[in-house]
Write a protein that binds this DNA or RNA. Structure first.
Lengths: 255, 255
DNA sequence: CGTTAGGTTGACTTGATTCAACAACAGTGG
DNA sequence: CCACTGTTGTTGAATCAAGTCAACCTAACG
């Protein structure tokens, strides 16, 4: 049981940061049956067209969703961190429309689809929390659309770095002034819709300008403020404010 | 009452195409209180940062979501058609992270937030249907990310045209071999992340090649098959299959 | 140590932008 | 009915951001 708490702790915390859960909700979440697995970096966790028998929760490590065009170009769609389900939507949609790969070595918990559906049915607040979680995912997609469509690659990269830092910080991972983004330049390129060569040039440019300080794959950011400005970053779209919308309670306090 | 049925018919139909509802669910949906409004083309329906008091359903006409970068560039995020809520997520997230504008003159029904939340709480299947609807929205965002990141503008435009045609067809709007996309070249540009000048050139190129036949703002497509191929379009991501995931029933039949 | 994945760099090309002018058309008011 | 005005669409020439190709470097690792 202590083990189960460890597995679901991050997810529960994330859910509760946006909508209230009671003790029974938390307990039901932590009582979900699961199958714990270790997967190596780069291993595929889900393939487009799959009808998975369970939802996969990241306990430790990073993963990313991606699609491949008919011409063979890869586009990364999102990066998932510990506490994220990589395929929550597939539980309800039935079929995966994207691939998921481990970015780093991961520890994942696979929860059977039926158990998830049962939980959603029996604990509406948990279902609500999961819904909201998918809505925040969608909001991040929207921001990526802007990143790809209307920001030049320099701003796009800065924006991406700000997003990762902020999300990891909120999830209680690292934070601080630097972070290991674990992504190769090729993966960054596939997230930004550009070529690895160009990522390299921008990274060096940012380094030269002092916006980032690189040490192998580790990045230090001397001034988040400067990076935020360079990327036109505002974290509104991450919807980090606590209890944005209670079940039927009063509207959230303005401060 | 007949009026209310007309208002919600398309939404109900869309919901039911993906998850089962019973008579009580349908009735509850159609009993939602609403305020009917006409809005002119280009009028703003929702602004980033708004905390709207209701959800807005498009009864007739088209609208689009967009964001504007700090540099002032606009990126269109999605186009909503009759039967779509333009801001369903905002009911749960509390705050809008995007703008919505009417693309054409619209008839919209505004449903108070509390009524929506109450409906979701009292009719879990309806809540589920709405959740799935937002999941399909997210899936479309993912495809747009690929469009912007990894397809050249020619493929991107073809892909977009295929998507609109398919969605309108399923919604019972037009379909056929041609359609009025109602968008100016500037709006197409803002959806594709390119310039209006370039949209113009691609459109003429497609015309010259016989992929589309233009008559003012009306487009005829002689061969959808050819256009699909040019855009690398597959409609898997629209999740149009009926009843992908029942509430707790057996897994969907494979055929 | 050799192998391999990832990173770096330069020379050249290209898809898309920019700017600027003009044409087509719709609506408006005299 | 026509002149005026604004929006949308069209086109060419110059420019630029990013891509391509190809070589080489570096560090990790069995």
């Amino acid at each position: 049981m202590t083990s189960a708490i460890r597995i679901f702790a991050r997810a529960v915390r994330k859910f509760e940061s946006r909508t209230p859960l009671d003790q029974a909700d938390r307990a039901a979440l932590c009582k979900l049956p699961f199958d714990l697995r270790h997967v190596e970096a780069n291993r595929t966790l889900l393939r487009e067209g799959d009808r998975p028998a369970g939802a996969t929760l990241i306990v430790q490590g990073l993963a990313f969703r991606h699609k491949v065009t008919v011409e063979g170009a890869r586009q990364i769609l999102s990066v998932q961190i510990p506490g994220d389900f990589i395929d929550l939507e597939v539980i309800l949609l039935g079929i995966a429309d994207y691939n998921v790969q481990a970015l780093t070595a991961c520890e994942v918990a696979i929860v059977p689809r039926e158990a998830m559906l049962k939980l959603i049915d029996s604990h509406p607040r948990v279902g609500r929390a999961m819904w909201i979680d998918t809505l925040v995912d969608a909001s991040i997609y929207r921001e990526w659309i802007v990143n790809l469509g209307r920001r030049d690659s320099r701003s796009g990269l800065c924006h991406l770095l700000c997003e990762f830092a902020r999300r990891l910080e909120v999830a209680g991972q690292s934070g601080g002034d630097g972070h290991d983004l674990s992504m190769t330049q090729e993966q960054l390129a596939d997230a930004l819709g550009i070529t690895p060569v160009h990522v390299n040039r921008i990274l060096r440019e940012l380094d030269r300008e002092g916006l980032v300080v690189r040490d192998h794959r580790l990045l230090r950011v001397p001034s988040w403020e400067a990076l935020r400005k360079a990327g036109g970053f505002s974290d509104l779209y991450l919807h980090l404010d606590r209890r944005a919308a209670g079940p039927l309670g009063p509207p959230p306090a303005r401060h």
